[in-house]
Design a protein around this nucleic acid. Structure first.
Lengths: 125, 125
DNA sequence: ATTTTAATTAACCTATAAGTTAATTAACTG
DNA sequence: CAGTTAATTAACTTATAGGTTAATTAAAAT
């Protein structure tokens, strides 16, 4: 096998960086579907070959697999790459929780101020 | 504000879809750093303007913020968009856990077979 | 006032992403 | 076998991503 020219995380994230492809994955999370099934909600916006291409991107990223059933190509979601992507993000959990902490602290400080006002000022406004 | 032409999830995922940018985020998770600090490990591979551009992409995605300190632009990681991205992925958790289940089942079935062999075959080989 | 340091902007190049229409392949159906 | 359905491939267009070098801005240091 020739070394892939882009790493798998990059493949995963760039596959996810398109709303049509994310919608296709959402649809596939409800169950297997053929290409025309998948394309149906998008046919107002784009052609069938466009969907074929999007599915190829998802397939190359390992996010779906295609099988064959007569002239249909049933597609199936594969969660494994999403697990890897989530694992990568986990290393930043503290950073988004930290900001929630800051929000918490802020809210507390607000409450403190409110208390001070209530005790200091005899008659409100 | 003019409506952004791409949704924020797409911005986040496409910002993450580049190994240089992911490395910049990893570096920033260790603490704030200026542009040249951040660029230093990459100067063998690319120019400073290239890093400036990568930082712009991260900034547009809300993954970092830049402040000013004399002629330096200290950059700081912002986890919020990663939280949103992780939340989106959560809806697929069952799909990657399911595959682990399948692996579990497979391993069990292998063990079953091993047991059968051990009891059935009197002499190995 | 001049020079150095930090960073960005401008102008440009090349590859590729995302779409199109038209043609093709492959399997089923009458 | 002729026709239909499902999907892909081919050929092409346009926009953008990611890089370059050279020029520019802005603050600090000499």
């Amino acid at each position: 096998m020739p070394e892939p020219r882009v790493d798998s995380l990059s493949l995963t994230f760039s596959a996810l960086a398109d709303p049509t492809r994310r919608a296709l994955l959402v649809r596939l999370s409800k169950g297997e579907a053929s290409v025309t099934d998948l394309a149906q909600p998008f046919m107002k916006d784009m052609s069938l070959p466009a969907i074929t291409k999007h599915l190829k991107v998802l397939e190359r990223a390992g996010l779906i697999t295609k099988s064959r059933d007569a002239q249909w190509r049933p597609c199936k979601l594969n969660g494994a790459p999403l697990k890897k992507a989530t694992n990568w993000m986990e290393q930043y959990r503290e950073f988004w929780e930290e900001s929630l902490d800051r929000l918490g602290e802020y809210l507390e400080s607000i409450q403190q101020q409110q208390k001070k006002k209530k005790t200091k000022v005899k008659k409100g406004k």
